[in-house]
Nucleic acid binder design. Structure first.
Lengths: 190, 190
DNA sequence: TGTACATCAGTGAACGCGCGTTCACTGATGTAC
DNA sequence: TGTACATCAGTGAACGCGCGTTCACTGATGTAC
């Protein structure tokens, strides 16, 4: 069966997925429309049946990825107890494999790209607020302050881990951030 | 007098300076050779008298800016007492005006750009180590661990402050990081 | 059930703009005599 | 001191490639009769 409308939605989704991976790995300016379409198993001409421009795709990709992360954190922080939620969020975020492969948080890979484009700045702030809320729910004490510094530390650690050419230094950044954010676990993690 | 060799060096320096500012503000891919040369008060044709390619310029710019920061931190950490050095480094790094104007640390504005280019990754790691050493010298206790998390937090706070479209949220990130890193001052800073 | 037609996602050649790079030329400065 | 020449940083027109975008066409699927 697979009625045409359904098929169309699936194709669009494949393009978004392909772009999400490629943009995070090589940057928005580092990937052409043809590469995205090839990755999605199509040819470049069909792109404009699904998106009005590359810029629009970039905006939707970063927005979608960020919202997905924010929603996931919100769910975790509501459905697990504090410590378990925090540990899940932090260890997943700082996972060395994901960082190395580029499948990591769009804040760290597209942050500067997106900061320079006007498009969807507002949606990004919304996602940021969602992430901060979720983190605050998992943290004791001065929640707002601690959520702000925790998010900063996670983002910075991933940015720096990707920047260091040396795997050992990369790992140090990720490990130090994890130990600092999950003090109880610090002793047995390593 | 101003012998020609001297003049040549100065011109080259002007180009580097112009590129440093423009690249940090708009990204490497967001600025053309012609824009850099115009900012330096020249026309684009002369660029290749000073640099073999735009890519080479980008590598030298990021390397120079990072080394400059690393050296400055090293000097501060050696010539001031601990608390004063730390306060100078942190408040300067997290200065809201500099962040907003784009004259901030190249780690936060060129980080992802540079992470994707092979050029000069090694020099960058060198600068990172220098910054970590300097920070460690200003911090008590487990110096290495604290230097890693402090640098991560500063970098992340600036990245997030630039990403947030809302000035209040921006300021929150910078303030929270400063308060966390300079606990003694926290009460009187605000 | 079979044939003719309509729809539309996808194809791939072509277009055109932006930008990195090249090159013949200019004009200011320094040197030789 | 003045004139002729050499040097070379800088100019700006031109080139060509990459890439975003367009468009005439294809071919598979669904509908009418």
């Amino acid at each position: 069966m697979a009625e045409p409308a359904q098929r169309r939605v699936e194709t669009r989704q494949r393009i978004l997925e392909a772009a999400g991976n490629l943009f995070r790995e090589h940057g928005i300016d580092g990937v052409g429309v043809d590469a995205v379409m090839k990755q999605a198993g199509l040819t470049h001409g069909g792109f404009y049946l699904h998106f009005p421009s590359k810029e629009a795709l970039a905006a939707e990709v970063s927005q979608t990825l960020l919202e997905r992360a924010a929603v996931k954190w919100q769910d975790l922080s509501r459905n697990l107890d504090r410590d378990a939620a925090l540990e899940t969020i932090v260890t997943h975020y700082l996972d060395a494999g994901r960082v190395a492969s580029g499948h990591c948080c769009p804040l760290t890979t597209l942050g500067t790209d997106v900061a320079r484009r006007t498009t969807s700045r507002q949606a990004i702030s919304g996602a940021l607020r969602g992430m901060l809320d979720a983190l605050g729910r998992c943290l004791p004490g001065r929640k707002r302050q601690r959520a702000l510094t925790a998010l900063s530390m996670m983002v910075g650690a991933v940015v720096l881990a990707r920047l260091a050419d040396d795997a050992a230094l990369s790992a140090e950044f990720l490990q130090a951030a994890a130990d600092s954010l999950l003090p109880v676990r610090a002793s047995r993690t390593q």
